[in-house]
Amino acid sequence: QKPIVRVFLPNKQRTVVPARCGVTVRDSLKKALMMRGLIPECCAVYRIQDGEKKPIGWDTDISWLTGEELHVEVLE
Rank of each mutant, 00 (worst) to 15 (best):
E52L: 07
G51H: 15
P3K: 15
S63I: 03
T24W: 01
P10F: 02
G51L: 09
L29E: 00
P10E: 02
A19R: 05
K12L: 09
D50T: 04
V25S: 00
Q49T: 14
G57E: 12
C21G: 13
C42E: 15
G67I: 02
K12I: 01
R26T: 07
T60M: 08
V25E: 00
V17P: 00
T60V: 10
W64K: 15
Q13D: 04
V25F: 02
V23P: 02
V17E: 01
L38G: 03
E41L: 03
P40C: 13
C21T: 15
R14T: 10
V45W: 01
K54N: 14
P3I: 02
Y46R: 06
A32E: 05
V16G: 03
F8E: 08
G67P: 03
G67N: 13
I56Q: 10
I62Q: 01
K54G: 11
L33R: 02
K54R: 11
I56K: 00
I56N: 01
I56P: 00
V5T: 03
R14P: 06
G67D: 12
R20N: 10
M35P: 10
S63E: 11
K12G: 14
R36W: 06
V23A: 12
V23N: 06
A32N: 07
G37Y: 02
G51M: 08
A32S: 09
E73Y: 06
D61M: 14
G37N: 15
L33F: 15
I4F: 04
C43Q: 02
G51N: 15
L29K: 00
C42F: 05
E68G: 10
I62W: 02
I48R: 11
G57S: 11
P40F: 15
K54F: 12
S28P: 00
R14Q: 14
L65W: 11
Q1C: 14
V7G: 00
E41Y: 04
K53L: 09
K12F: 04
W64I: 13
H71W: 11
P55N: 13
R26M: 15
V5G: 00
R14F: 14
I62S: 08
L70C: 07
K54Q: 10
V17Q: 04
E76A: 07
V45G: 04
N11G: 11
E68P: 05
P55Q: 12
K54I: 08
G67K: 11
D61R: 05
A44N: 15
A19N: 02
V72P: 00
E52Q: 13
G37T: 09
M35F: 08
D61A: 07
L29W: 00
K2P: 03
P55W: 07
K30N: 11
L38K: 03
L29H: 00
A32M: 05
T24I: 04
K2V: 07
P55I: 06
E73Q: 08
G57P: 13
I4G: 05
T24M: 07
T24R: 07
P18V: 11
V45S: 06
V25T: 12
Q1K: 15
K12T: 06
I39L: 12
K2Y: 14
D27R: 08
P10D: 02
G57F: 07
K30T: 09
D27T: 10
I62T: 11
Q13W: 03
Q1A: 07
G22C: 06
K31W: 02
A32I: 08
H71P: 00
C43I: 04
G67R: 09
E76F: 01
L38Q: 09
A32H: 08
R20A: 12
G37R: 09
K12N: 12
G57I: 12
K31H: 10
E69A: 06
K2W: 01
P18C: 12
F8L: 12
A19M: 03
L33E: 03
N11V: 02
L75W: 04
Q1M: 15
Q13C: 02
K31V: 04
I56M: 09
A32L: 09
M34P: 04
D50L: 07
I39Y: 11
C21M: 15
I48G: 08
K12V: 03
W64T: 15
R20I: 06
L75A: 15
M34V: 13
T60K: 10
H71K: 09
D27M: 06
R26Q: 15
R36N: 04
C42L: 12
A19D: 01
E68Y: 06
S63L: 04
V5L: 02
V23D: 05
C42H: 15
Q13F: 04
V74G: 13
V16K: 06
V45F: 13
G51T: 12
W58S: 02
L9I: 02
E41C: 04
I48L: 14
I48M: 13
G22E: 03
E68T: 09
L29S: 01
I62F: 04
